[in-house]
Amino acid sequence: MTNHISTIEEISKELKLIQSTIETEMSEDVQEAVDRGNYCAAQMARTGKLLADAKIHRDRKLNSQIIAQMKKLSALPATTANKFADALCEDENYIVNWCERINRACTHQLDWCRTLISKAKAEMSQMNG
């Protein structure tokens, strides 16, 4: 199975698009909730893939930086060495964190959409019954 790993630039570009959509305030219109829910469900899957890609980039950078900085890292206490290693991958860590946060935001928005749809169903039942 060949799996295309998105570049950091591609990941960042997609995250910007998703971010701008999920930052858009939503009304309580049921159709809008359904549409947003469908969008969020799809983006949860997509951001999961982007997150995996971002972690590959971070791991690759970390591995190359650890080799390059082995002498410095070996002289540091373990916790300090870990923080130093994380600092070497600052951009990659940023993208990983951004993917995780957008994925989580989509999850919360999807929950909100379900709530609005349930509310609308309950109101329709009360009106018809």
Rank of each mutant, 00 (worst) to 15 (best):
N3P: 00
N3T: 12
N3C: 07
H4S: 04
S6H: 11
E10S: 05
I11P: 13
S12C: 06
I18L: 03
I18D: 03
S20F: 07
S20L: 11
S20V: 11
T21N: 14
I22D: 07
E23F: 06
E25K: 15
D29E: 15
A33P: 04
V34I: 13
N38M: 04
N38S: 03
Y39P: 01
C40H: 01
C40K: 02
A42Q: 08
Q43N: 06
Q43E: 05
M44Y: 03
K49T: 10
L50N: 10
A52F: 07
D59K: 15
D59A: 12
D59Q: 14
D59G: 11
K61I: 03
N63W: 08
Q65C: 04
I66G: 00
Q69G: 00
M70N: 11
K71Q: 13
K71N: 12
K72P: 01
S74I: 01
P77M: 05
P77N: 09
P77Y: 03
T79K: 15
A85W: 00
D86C: 11
A87E: 15
A87Q: 15
L88N: 04
L88R: 03
E90Y: 05
N93F: 01
Y94S: 02
I95W: 02
I102K: 05
I102M: 04
R104T: 09
Q109S: 06
L110E: 00
L110I: 01
T115N: 06
S118R: 11
A120C: 10
A120F: 03
A120H: 12
K121G: 09
S125M: 09
